[in-house]
Design a protein around this nucleic acid. Structure first.
Lengths: 187, 187
DNA sequence: CGAGCAATCTTGCCAGTGACAAGTTTCGAC
DNA sequence: GTCGAAACTTGTCACTGGCAAGATTGCTCG
């Protein structure tokens, strides 16, 4: 798979990001250790610093990757808001490590231009989907409020799901559960 | 205020919890240092361990305190779901440190009996308020789905607010903004 | 082809942290 | 007043992030 032999690793930056995703999925972003990443990748403890500067730099790169992945996922989800909402929750569960970093700005440099750009891309896709929401009660909906309400409900459900705070009767299929809950808003 | 003189602090447990809330409000739970707490309280670096065992023990106590405070806050908020939802968001903003710990179970012992009891108390109050939700479209609402949708939307809005992820046009008054968003669900 | 330069990675170090062990001081019950 | 238990201290260890300085390698340009 990855050669990893020789003085130069070859693709250390990517390897570190992949390993970080793995480690965060196991124990959360707080427990992430650069030295552990280095050990897993078979390099010295100072190697990560060369590519990312510091821990926040690595998590910044992970956040950019996450927002791009989210934009792509939402873009492929279909036109209507329900499908986009289900895709949002599904993204959070399938890419838990990315999701947990993305919305914890104290862990990385959220004002980094690359982060802002990627975050804007994802936000635009979400807003497009909200525009397809039918107006309620036959009247004109307020796009601002609809967007905030939609984002809040999917983000809240995803967060509670990841935290294990939801009661067992919700089941173990996040997509199905998300569809059930979101339909309360868009029905 | 606090005497703190003599070999015995007098009320170290409470002092540590209060200082922890302060520290977490400043820099988040990940940056919390037991040794820093001890310094702020004017005791030795190993004193906290006597009261809480380890870091997770301190955060467990903080979570219990948080869930109790949430139950109390929701109980005082009034009968209808909108008022409870606004109170939920207001709690998250005013007691940010507690809220951030409560829904990050990897930081503490979430299966601790005291935590489960306090968490159940808060959940029961929330469920009571959902029962007061008028059925939609004149038909019968589904209490399970209504409760999940309500919890999701308030939790999601609160989380996004705390993360600083919401656009500036939402304003700077969390209660007003929360009422605006939640009304989309309960109108 | 090969010389030098920049990127990559290493070793070594320092301060700070959480956890544990063992000792010291004080409180309170009897 | 004594004595046991609770509260707190000192000391230590392994680990972490970050920095500095050095070693190795790939790449570019003549």
């Amino acid at each position: 798979m990855t050669p990893t032999r020789g003085y130069h690793h070859g693709d250390l930056r990517r390897a570190l990001l992949d390993t970080a995703v793995e480690a965060i999925s196991e124990s959360g972003p707080a427990a992430l250790s650069l030295r552990d990443l280095a050990r897993r990748a078979g390099v010295s403890h100072a190697a990560p610093a060369h590519h990312f500067g510091d821990k926040a730099g690595l998590l910044t790169a992970l956040a950019v990757q996450g927002f791009d992945l989210l934009a792509e996922t939402l873009g492929q989800a279909g036109d209507d808001l329900l499908a986009a909402g289900v895709a949002y929750v599904d993204f959070a569960v399938r890419h838990r490590a990315h999701f947990e970093v993305m919305f914890r700005p104290e862990l990385y440099r959220a004002q980094d231009p690359q982060v802002r750009a990627a975050s804007d891309r994802a936000g635009n896709v979400l807003r497009d989907r909200v525009a397809g929401l039918p107006a309620r009660d036959g009247g004109a909906g307020e796009p601002g409020r609809d967007a905030l309400a939609a984002w809040s409900i999917v983000h809240g459900f995803a967060t509670l799901w990841l935290a294990g705070a939801l009661p067992p009767r919700v089941g173990d299929d996040p997509r199905e559960a998300a569809r059930y809950v979101i339909s309360r808003l868009v029905e």
